[in-house]
Computed example of a mutant assay.
Amino acid sequence: MPRYKLTVEYDGFPYVGWQWQDNGRAVQQAMEEAVERFAGERVRLQCAGRTDTGVHALGQVAHLDLADAWRTDTVRDAINAHLKLAGDRVAVVTAEQVGAGFDARHSALKRHYLYRILNRRAPPALGHGRLWHVPRRLDAGAMQAAAQLVLGQHDFTTFRAAECQASSPVRTLDVLDVARSGDEITVRASARSFLHHQVRSLVGSLEQVGCGRWPPAGMRAALDARDRRRCGPLAPAHGLYFVSVDYPPATRESAAK
């Protein structure tokens, strides 16, 4: 049974997140329905990281098994055609045939996220629902200094959702970089895995540093407290993007056409 790796882009605004839910349409639901319409099979897609309601993706990765060996360009184009017919804001960017040992979640070496902040008095006219508008001036330099204080392996209980189901709060944060370009501030985060709401919790706390409510050292103090009550406000979901996933080179067997 051939296995396919799909790289997926989506606008998270209309969806209740990646995973099937009873309270609305999910990205997973949209894709599985599209696959069934084109291939005549009911499948279950496994993804690299389940995103929450409103979170976007530039390079989410999922895998699925099909009974027939379809050309990779056919898999990509047929799924996209049915997604378009259904009015979904989801697209398969690439499709690759991979070995049976590839798993979108468990084979991942590192996951990369981007958070976008529009930092100006005027609200966005074009980016509504795709970034966090913060009208008060933020000091991106102070935010970057604070971000470097929480890199490495730590107990991230402070920056973890109360309902997080991970067995341990310990994670290794490889990258947390803050940069300004004009009116936009971006926060980039990379790690093998993240806790539920970890990136949004970190960004919300960095915003407290940027506006002067916390000194940069306050970020490390919050981390060391291991207390969810010491976290800053949770940054909105609509500013967050799942950018890409790194895998071992051996997992790729054929390039998308």
Rank of each mutant, 00 (worst) to 15 (best):
W214C: 04
R200S: 02
V134H: 15
G218F: 05
R220D: 06
K84P: 00
G12K: 05
A161W: 10
D88Q: 14
L202D: 03
V175P: 01
C211V: 13
V61I: 14
R252Q: 11
R105F: 08
D77M: 12
L202H: 04
E33Q: 13
P215F: 02
D52E: 13
D68N: 11
H238T: 10
Q148F: 00
A30W: 00
P135L: 09
Q208M: 15
Q60F: 11
Q28D: 03
D174P: 01
Q19H: 11
T74F: 14
T72V: 15
E33M: 07
L149E: 09
I185N: 01
P2L: 10
A166W: 02
P169R: 12
E33A: 14
S244C: 08
L114A: 13
E32P: 04
R230D: 11
H197W: 13
C211G: 02
H112Q: 12
P2W: 07
D183S: 12
N119L: 10
D52M: 06
R252V: 14
A140N: 05
G204H: 08
P249L: 09
S201P: 04
R180Q: 14
S107F: 07
C47F: 03
I79N: 00
L109S: 07
P135I: 13
A235E: 00
A222Q: 10
V43Y: 00
A235F: 01
D22A: 14
L83S: 03
R76I: 12
F38R: 07
D224I: 11
G182K: 00
F194V: 07
I185R: 00
G17M: 04
G141V: 05
V243A: 14
L118I: 09
R130V: 02
L126E: 05
S205C: 10
Q46M: 12
Q198F: 05
E33K: 09
L85R: 14
L202E: 02
D22E: 15
F242W: 10
F156D: 05
A67P: 03
V187P: 02
L109I: 08
L149I: 03
T51Q: 04
G127Y: 06
A104G: 09
A91C: 15
V61A: 03
L6S: 06
R213W: 13
W18H: 00
P216G: 06
R136P: 01
A48F: 01
R213I: 12
A30P: 04
K5D: 02
R71D: 14
R213E: 14
S181E: 14
L234R: 08
Q208P: 02
V187Y: 03
T7C: 10
Q29F: 05
A256P: 11
A57Y: 09
G239N: 09
G129T: 09
A250G: 02
Q144T: 00
G24Q: 02
P216F: 01
F102Q: 06
Y4R: 08
V199E: 01
G232H: 01
A62K: 02
A162R: 12
V175T: 15
V178R: 00
E32V: 08
L6V: 07
A62I: 01
G141E: 15
L126C: 08
D183E: 15
A166P: 06
Q46D: 12
L234Y: 05
C211I: 12
P123R: 14
Q46W: 10
P123S: 12
A255C: 12
D174V: 02
E184H: 11
V98A: 06
H196G: 03
D65H: 11
T157N: 06
I185F: 06
G24K: 01
D11W: 04
L149W: 00
